[in-house]
C-alpha cells in the first residue's frame, strides 16, 4: 500500500512539474540574445584574430620579417573587407549611411583598449559592453576589470 502511495506521489509530482508550463502558459525565452555577435561580426573577429596570430608568431620569432610582412599585408586586406562588410551590415540594420572609410588601425586600437578596460573577452576577443561581467559571445568570466 505504502509502495503504491509512493509511486502515485512520485508520478503526480512529475506530471504536475512538467505540465504546469503548458497549462499555466509559463514561457521560456526562445530569443537569441541581442548583444550576440552577428555573422559579419564573427567574420571580423576571425580576421582580427588571424592578425593577432601573425603578430604573435612574429614576436615569438617564428616568422621572419619578410614572411611577416607578406602575411600581414594579406590579412590586413581581408580584415578590412570584413570590417567594411560588418559596417555595411550594421548600417543596413540601423538605417544609417555606411561610413565611407574604415580605419583598421582604429578598430584594432579599440580592441586593445577593450582589452585594457577588460571588456574584450580574453577567450574570444569579443568586445563587450562596459560593465559586463561575462562575455556575451562565449560566456567566459571577464573578472573585476570589466566591472568598472
Amino acid at each position: 500500500m505504502t509502495l503504491y502511495l509512493g509511486v502515485a506521489l512520485v508520478a503526480a509530482a512529475v506530471v504536475l512539474f512538467i505540465v504546469q508550463p503548458v497549462v499555466k502558459g509559463i514561457h521560456a525565452s526562445l530569443e537569441r540574445e541581442d548583444d550576440e555577435m552577428t555573422e559579419t561580426e564573427a567574420r571580423k573577429r576571425v580576421a582580427l584574430l588571424a592578425l593577432r596570430d601573425v603578430e604573435y608568431d612574429f614576436l615569438a620569432g617564428k616568422l621572419d620579417e619578410a614572411d611577416y610582412r607578406s602575411l600581414k599585408a594579406e590579412l590586413t586586406a581581408e580584415a578590412l573587407a570584413a570590417l567594411e562588410a560588418d559596417d555595411a551590415a550594421k548600417s543596413v540594420a540601423t538605417g544609417a549611411e555606411p561610413t565611407a572609410t574604415v580605419d583598421l588601425e582604429a578598430e584594432i586600437a579599440a580592441i586593445r583598449r577593450g582589452l585594457r578596460a577588460g571588456t574584450s573577452c580574453p577567450e574570444c576577443a569579443y568586445t563587450n559592453a562596459p560593465g559586463s561581467r561575462f562575455c556575451s559571445a562565449c560566456g567566459a568570466a571577464l573578472g573585476e576589470l570589466a566591472a568598472s
Binding site: 593577432r52 603578430e55 604573435y56 614576436l59 586600437a109 580592441i111 586593445r112 582589452l115 585594457r116 577588460g118 574584450s120 580574453p122 577567450e123 576577443a125 567566459a140 568570466a141 571577464l142 573578472g143 573585476e144 576589470l145 570589466a146
Partner: peptide, 20 residues
C-alpha cells in the same frame, strides 16, 4: 578564466592580445 581577476587594477598592455 580566473586570471583576469588576478590581474587586478593594472592595465592590460596593448600587445597583450598578440602575446597571448
Amino acid at each position: 578564466s580566473i586570471d583576469r581577476r588576478r590581474a587586478g587594477a593594472g592595465a592590460v598592455a596593448p600587445h597583450e592580445a598578440a602575446l597571448a
